[in-house]
């Protein structure tokens, strides 16, 4: 087993320094905003996530190595190009993991934590799940182990991927150069991902390479005329880290408990967040469609008003 460092753990002091730097920048020029309790919650979620990760690491690493040794098709070894290949494949797997985390309530229950702040700053990057181990997320990386890349290399690349994603959680940077915006994930693209404006819902899932969103139709650019508002479509009314960590699980269990049919019970886990058998709550698709209808109605009314004004003149 290759002994590689864990990039995110090594970077913890840098995270803290960069958060303090962003606070100073925001305090001076107003381009970043913090709130004490929100920051406390975000960082406690990050700490809890590290503890939860440490508790489940043995199982995950064991499972990954079992799959690798049992099913590997090729033996890639540990040449430099294997690291490059692993990074690209892991980023592709991350895209689908992330997309599923928004489109399947079971996975959303863990990922929702990362979106639960109404602020968007570097501390939001640390607001991570405590319950990822209870989702099918690990299965998404299995094909990479099965083609023959050693799990230690994949986990190392996944760490680098998360490291990259830290700096994009900021409002202090407007846009990067055009070529950079085209190829890579940036603060602008990721602000859209964290926004709860109906126009921006469920978009920009990329980790590092923006090409996946462009390829699979989930790319939405940030628009100057519509600033991002951050948080959930139904924001949390609490800073309590325990409630933040488990609220969606509580919702899922409550829904499954009160469901009358097995099909509904399954769909409360597998359908997108907001799905109900009777349509009494709204999924992100329903929210976007309702918003589009309102926008079209507004345009029609404006058109009529314009015509009547012209007629009156």
């Amino acid at each position: 087993m290759l002994d590689l460092p864990a990039p995110t753990q090594l970077a913890v002091p840098a995270f803290t320094i960069l958060i303090l730097a962003e606070m100073i920048i925001g305090w001076k020029n107003g381009r970043a905003r913090y709130e004490g309790k929100d920051t406390m919650t975000s960082m406690l979620m990050g700490l809890g996530s590290t503890v939860a990760g440490a508790l489940t690491a043995t199982f995950y690493v064991g499972l990954a190595y079992w799959v690798w040794t049992t099913f590997q098709i090729f033996d890639f070894g540990a040449a430099w190009w294997v690291f490059v290949l692993a990074f690209v494949l892991d980023d592709f797997a991350y895209y689908w993991f992330h997309r599923l985390s928004h489109r399947m309530r079971w996975m959303w229950a863990a990922h929702v934590i990362h979106h639960s702040s109404q602020h968007y700053n570097l501390s939001t990057a640390l607001r991570q799940t405590w319950t990822g181990a209870f989702t099918p997320a690990i299965l998404i990386r299995m094909p990479i182990f099965m083609i023959g890349i050693e799990p230690a290399i994949v986990f190392f690349c996944a760490g680098l991927n998360l490291l990259y994603q830290f700096w994009i959680h900021t409002e202090a940077i407007d846009k990067m150069p055009r070529w950079f915006e085209y190829l890579l994930n940036t603060p602008s693209h990721h602000r859209v991902h964290h926004a709860n404006n109906p126009r921006y819902l469920d978009a920009n899932y990329a980790g590092v390479f923006m090409v996946w969103d462009r390829m699979f139709g989930s790319y939405i650019p940030e628009r100057k005329e519509e600033p991002c508002r951050y948080g959930l479509v139904t924001d949390l009314g609490t800073f309590n880290p325990l409630r933040v960590a488990v609220h969606e699980w509580v919702g899922i269990f409550s829904d499954i408990w009160s469901a009358k049919r097995w099909k509904d019970r399954a769909l409360f886990l597998l359908a997108p967040p907001g799905w109900t058998p009777d349509g009494s709550r709204m999924t992100s698709d329903m929210i976007r469609n309702a918003w589009l209808e309102r926008e079209n109605a507004k345009k029609k009314n404006t058109g009529r008003k314009d015509k009547s004004t012209v007629a009156a003149e």
């Binding site: 920051t39 406390m40 501390s123």
Partner: peptide, 25 residues
Amino acid sequence: MSLLQFIGSLIAVTIVALIAARMFP
């Protein structure tokens, strides 16, 4: 993660949050 690391992290989190609360009332 050792207990010492955990306690150290907890102190760091509290300090950063207090600075945030002070700088952004």
